[in-house]
């Protein structure tokens, strides 16, 4: 079984898709090198990332299929779920044939799967746009740690760059050790393992406490519904909230 291995980057994945199209030796799977486990039957082929080739695939998806399809592919890639390299490959194989209509073919497994995963990533992004919490550090800097299921920090940064345009901020994905940094002009993504000791701004605790009290008071007694609360705000996200929902 031929397996193409890429370096884990989106460019790497697109390069692998390029090679799969042009090489005669077609892969049965495409996966990130990190997640590859050697076994007796597989024949790995390491694909070297090439930004020209990746760029061609990128353009081709947009031109020959649709911008929407490109977005879905990127979202599915960001899910980092096992098997997404191969899934994207299958989805695109089909896409080259049918073009812009692709997402109407809901009876096809790869199409449904791509839409389903892309949607999950989109849902988490939307959810985190609301649930992210900044804390003010001394020196006019706001810091927001979070631990998303998917690799969405890059999908969140543009929103906050528009919204909190006049403040400096860091959005830190603790799980993956990456962060988006913004300096009131532009944002970029860099690795950031830990932060060390942070010194909070003097009135940070004051506003946190106001918010916690507000959160407790705003619920109407007699209408308590924890189930719905958890449904929309799963408990795994509570850790980084300022407010404290009770179990």
């Amino acid at each position: 079984m031929i397996i193409y291995l890429y370096d884990g980057s989106f460019e790497g994945l697109l390069t692998a898709i390029y090679e799969a199209y042009y090489r005669s030796e077609k892969p049965e799977q495409i996966m990130a090198q990190q997640s590859y486990q050697p076994d007796l039957f597989s024949q790995p082929r390491v694909i070297a990332t090439d930004s020209d080739k990746a760029g061609k695939v990128y353009d081709a998806i947009e031109r020959k299929i649709s911008h929407e399809a490109l977005e879905h592919v990127f979202y599915v890639y960001l899910s980092e779920l096992p098997g997404v390299g191969t899934l994207i490959y299958r989805y695109l194989q089909f896409g080259w044939r049918v073009g812009a209509d692709i997402n109407g073919h809901l009876s096809l497994e790869p199409v449904r799967e791509v839409l389903r995963i892309s949607q999950k990533v989109g849902v988490e992004r939307h959810r985190m746009l609301g649930l992210l919490r900044f804390k003010k550090i001394q020196g006019e800097l706001y810091y927001a740690p979070f631990e998303p299921d998917y690799n969405i920090v890059g999908l969140m940064a543009p929103h906050f760059a528009r919204r909190l345009a006049d403040q400096n901020w860091i959005i830190h994905d603790l799980k993956r050790g990456v962060a988006a940094f913004y300096n009131q002009e532009r944002w970029l993504i860099r690795e950031l393992a830990g932060t060390g000791q942070l010194n909070w701004e003097e009135n940070e605790a004051f506003y946190q406490e106001l918010w916690q009290n507000y959160f407790q008071r705003i619920a109407v007694e007699g209408r308590t519904n924890r189930k719905v609360q958890r449904q929309f705000m799963p408990a795994r996200y509570w850790h980084h909230l300022i407010e404290k929902p009770t179990q």
Binding site: G130, R223, T224, N225, Q229, F232, M233, P245
Partner: peptide, 13 residues
């Protein structure tokens, strides 16, 4: 955008 959900399950925006 909802920013939280209160104990009564309502969106806090």
């Amino acid at each position: 955008i909802c920013h939280s959900w209160s104990q009564d399950g309502r969106c806090i925006s």
